[in-house]
């Protein structure tokens, strides 16, 4: 029985704080945490699935397979399939540059990469309306060339790329900084070229962090609501992503269908959390391995 404030050997514990009282205090704190997390996390999580299945399996499957839902799912997959690889490539390139080299203005660039995190999603959408909307800076040019970006798929892709921009880079920069450049320098001095160094030395070292960054980026790309809502125009079957479809159903008082579609996004969130747990476990394992190698 470990006590949080137990003094080391030799000094009787009772003199400072009675064990019984400490134990009661501990359970009080744990119960408080459980109560708070139940109200905010557990009950909402359960409620999503209860509401989704409240009218039976048939209604559930009908809600997630009807044509509008199917087209929303398709659009969301398309958007993620463009946004995630783009930001993955950028993340790797940027962290190579920012973690492996020292140059003036580096910290400023890292702050700039964080910008999309600091901005309200509504503003993230607004900036693309200001650029590409009919009254926007490039509006006349786009109309003259018969191009449509805002209230169409390209706008949704752009807004999603903007919002998910920092995820991979944010995950990789501290990781690559902590690993240093000795291994890469050794490989280079032995005659390896840049690609060989990256694929044989750097990539194996960062693969778990990279996976986590990608999975977070993907979760946000598929779940983004505010920014996409501004640029989408809410055209059913055309520019509705899954979160926007949920909103449409909810505002039509079609609650069961809204929760059924929302349960898909919830599953995605849970998978994201499981992958995160797995990556953390793997990282800890490889840390222990490298420590035992040294020892």
């Amino acid at each position: 029985m470990k006590s949080s404030v137990a003094p080391s050997e030799g000094i009787p514990l009772q003199k400072t704080i009675p064990i019984k009282q400490t134990k009661r205090f501990r359970w009080l704190l744990i119960s408080l945490v459980f109560l708070f997390l139940s109200l905010f996390l557990l009950i909402p999580l359960v409620a999503i699935f209860v509401e989704a299945f409240s009218q039976g399996l048939d209604v559930y499957f009908e809600a997630i397979t009807e044509p509008y839902a199917a087209s929303a799912i398709q659009l969301t997959l398309l958007v993620a399939a463009i946004a995630v690889p783009l930001n993955l490539l950028f993340g790797v390139v940027a962290s190579w540059c920012l973690a492996k080299f020292d140059f003036p203005g580096k910290n400023f660039i890292i702050t700039l990469i964080d910008l999309p995190f600091a901005i309200s999603p509504v503003i993230s959408g607004l900036i693309f309306v200001l650029l590409f909307g009919t009254q926007g800076l490039l509006g006349d040019w786009l109309i003259a060339h018969n191009l449509r970006i805002v209230f169409a798929v390209p706008g949704i892709v752009l807004a999603t790329v903007f919002v998910t921009f920092p995820f991979v880079a944010r995950e990789l920069i501290p990781l690559m900084q902590s690993q240093g450049i000795q291994e890469e320098e050794a490989a280079t001095s032995l005659g390896a070229n840049g690609w060989q160094v990256f694929f044989r030395i750097t990539l194996p070292n960062i693969k778990w962090g990279l996976l986590y960054g990608v999975i977070l980026c993907n979760a946000r790309a598929m779940g983004e609501f505010g920014a996409v809502s501004v640029v989408s125009g809410h055209i059913r079957g055309e520019t509705n992503t899954i979160p926007l479809h949920v909103e449409t159903l909810y505002n039509e008082y079609n609650f069961t269908a809204a929760f059924a579609v929302a349960s898909l996004l919830t599953l995605l969130a849970l998978i994201t959390l499981i992958v995160k747990g797995f990556v953390e476990w793997k990282t800890k394992q490889s840390e222990n391995e490298s420590q035992s190698e040294i020892g």
């Binding site: 996390l41 977070l216 929302a262 969130a269 747990g277």
Partner: peptide, 29 residues
């Protein structure tokens, strides 16, 4: 305490759950 690892993992749920889903479920509850 029992369930500690699950709780630890669930803390990040608000990061992973789309805000629209959080919105409709909290409103309903």
């Amino acid at each position: 305490f029992p369930g500690k690892r699950v709780i630890d993992g669930l803390i990040d749920l608000p990061f992973a759950l789309p805000t629209a889903v959080a919105g409709i479920v909290l409103t309903t509850l």
